[in-house]
């Protein structure tokens, strides 16, 4: 590998943040793959962007608003339809310690 854009530690850290569990072999594999992707992305760095404002969107549209008018909400039983558990109209989840 000529240049490293991402380390195994970073891959493991990002995986943890995403609550994904990988074995050592997988971490190795994803590090190589992500590294290839990031090296490929470096191509973008070759474009001269001096004096060009950064953009966050691919389209030029600005200010898409809606009016403050109440619309229709879902019946709670529909909102909860896909939940693994529910009680009294609430989603039931494993206890969160605060």
């Amino acid at each position: 590998m000529e240049k490293m854009r991402i380390s195994k530690e970073e891959v493991a850290h990002v995986a943890h943040l995403a609550r994904l569990e990988f074995g050592a072999e997988e971490v190795e594999k994803f590090t190589t793959q992500l590294n290839d992707i990031l090296l490929y992305m470096d191509k973008l760095g070759e474009v001269d962007t001096v004096g060009v404002e950064p953009v966050t969107h691919a389209i030029a549209r600005k200010n898409a608003f809606r009016d403050d008018k109440v619309g229709v909400s879902l019946p709670p039983e529909v909102s909860l339809a896909n939940a693994p558990g529910g009680r009294g109209g609430c989603f039931l989840v494993p206890k969160v310690i605060e």
Partner: peptide, 8 residues
């Protein structure tokens, strides 16, 4: 019980 309830 070891559960929490969520109201969104």
């Amino acid at each position: 019980n070891p559960v929490s309830l969520v109201d969104l």
